[in-house]
Design a protein around this nucleic acid. Structure first.
Length: 468
RNA sequence: GGUGAGGUGGCAGAGCGGCUAUGCGUUCGCCUGCAAAGCGAAUCUAUAGGGGUUCGAAUCCCUUCCUCACCUCCA
């Protein structure tokens, strides 16, 4: 599999001969997650599902930043502790991302639980003369790391001339960044240099080195983390280990709204909670995968509505496949379905192997949907044909993390009974009576499709946007 | 100002030297008791502008213009 690497600015072959180790920069837990966070996490979740579907072992680590000025400020405003704030948002993180059908990472290390590791890392950096103690904290000496800027393609002298670097007299160089910040207030920890808190960047170095070693396969995150966060991680980790850090840097494009980046500071975010209620996880996942991961994607209601239409086609197809009855299939139909399924399966895999081209892969998936619906429309879809399509259909659904709404056995029985009653009334041309039953069925969340000879039912997911 | 990524039909979005995807939308039909869904057909020959290279370019090169992101915290 090839993945575009931000560092080498080229596609690189992912080494899948052993376990694929992935470290994803997660969220800072001081507020609700939004669709921007969700996109990054959904992309990585899908990547992980894909690799595993190929029989590749994956070790997936995603951190929580649970010590940070924003958390502390928030705690102050709400008159509570930083710890309470972070636990609250970690809890809601899991609730929301479980609803987005995101598989849990192998570990979710928290910064506050790795203070020791960070201190040890900083010790070595000081020993190796890459860091120094100052009046406000411990700083990394950027000028000591020759390759600083290699990820973000920035030149040190250009950064200095940029006026946005914070001015701090106690630093040797304005570019130096904090590894440890002395603090008088909680939360704070003991360290050889004094009471304080870790800097943001050091936590990801410490936790990724600890769990995945000095050089692992993929390090990921949103594009906006390239500088300074990932640049600084490289500086710290490589200075510490003397080895090259992550082999592939995979960065996810921003979610925009009206063409502008969605962010807390601009106040234009759509929370995961909100979008889940409005669109549901299937539509959101399909939407997030409808564009290439590296490019921006615009949160647009029109596009999300379009995605609902697509999702309805998938649901329709699924129930056609699952509820198809016995009967004889024509050789042509069997051949047609076999060819389509094989082609779609191949294209799907090839697309994802080629820099994780999800839009093309999703496209391939819809070939199966289209073909099944096509055969079904003339009532030639019998179980022997469906059985050709279903394994691949289900596997792709699983890789994409999509879930079809199901009904219980009792409801199933009830639906069939109602359908029979309705069809009886239709035969008697009692359409009013038939429509009453149709309404009754639709109240169960079921949509009926009258084919010539039989009536198909579909359990449709309830989608908030459609009921308003 | 620097750096990076881009500019493809009404919209979304692949392709990245020849065969000009695909989906949504729109129009008309089929099906239906009526719907809905589905199917079929039609619509749309698009590749920011200008130069080049080539038998041939959306795809390569040069150039102009435009958009976004990063250069402060950010997924």
């Amino acid at each position: 599999m090839k993945i575009f690497d931000t560092l080498s600015v080229a596609e690189k072959e992912l080494d899948t001969s052993n376990k694929v180790r992935i470290y994803l920069c997660g969220v800072t837990v001081y507020d609700d997650s939004h669709i921007g966070h969700a996109r990054t996490i959904i992309v990585f979740d899908t990547l992980r599902r894909f690799l595993e579907s190929q029989g590749i072992k994956v070790e997936f680590i995603q951190n929580f930043t649970d010590v940070d000025d924003k958390i502390i400020n928030r705690a102050r405003v709400e008159n509570t502790s930083a710890d309470k704030i972070s636990s609250k948002y970690i809890a809601s993180y899991f609730e929301e991302f479980d609803n987005l059908n995101v598989i849990h990472a192998d570990r979710y290390p928290k910064a506050t639980e790795h203070i020791e590791d960070m201190i040890n890392l900083i010790k070595v950096l000081i020993e190796k003369n890459f860091a120094y103690v100052s009046t406000n904290g411990v700083y990394f000496s950027v000028s000591r790391f020759q390759k600083y800027g290699k990820l973000s393609k920035k030149k040190i002298h250009e950064l200095v001339s940029g006026a946005r670097v914070e001015i701090d007299e106690t630093k040797k160089d304005p570019l130096d960044f904090a590894l440890w910040k002395f603090a008088n207030d909680e939360p704070r920890w003991e360290s050889p240099w004094g009471l304080g808190r870790p800097g943001w960047h050091i936590e990801c170095s410490a936790m990724s080195l600890k769990y995945l070693g000095p050089n692992f396969e993929i390090h990921g995150g949103g594009r906006d983390l390239i500088f300074p966060h990932h640049e600084n991680e490289i500086a710290q980790s490589e200075s510490y280990s003397g080895e090259n850090f992550a082999k592939i840097w995979m960065h996810i494009g921003m979610v925009t709204i009206n063409g502008e980046k969605m962010s807390k500071s601009l106040g234009n975010t759509k929370s995961v909670d909100f979008v889940l209620k409005k669109w549901g996880s299937n539509v959101i996942r399909l939407f997030c995968l409808s564009g290439h991961y590296s490019k921006p994607i615009d949160y647009s209601e029109d596009l999300l509505r379009e995605t609902i239409t697509k999702w309805r086609q998938v649901e329709n197809c699924y129930y056609e496949l699952v509820l198809s009855g016995d009967g004889s299939a024509s050789i042509e139909d069997v051949k047609f379905m076999e060819d389509i399924v094989e082609e779609a399966r191949k294209e799907f895999t090839e697309a994802l192997n080629s820099d994780f081209n999800t839009p093309f892969a999703v496209n391939a998936f819809f070939k199966i949907v289209k073909a099944a619906n096509q055969i079904a429309s003339s009532e030639r879809l019998v179980s022997s044909i469906s059985n050709i399509a279903l394994p691949v259909f289900n596997q792709i659904l699983d890789i994409l993390g999509l879930k079809i709404s199901q009904v219980t056995l009792e409801v199933k029985t009830k639906i069939n009974e109602l359908i029979n009653r309705r069809n009886l009334l239709r035969n008697q041309k009692n359409f009013q009576g038939a429509d009453i039953i149709r309404k009754e069925i639709s109240d169960l969340g079921i949509v009926l499709i009258d084919h010539r000879k039989k009536t198909l039912w579909i359990k449709q997911e309830k989608i908030g946007a459609e009921n308003s």
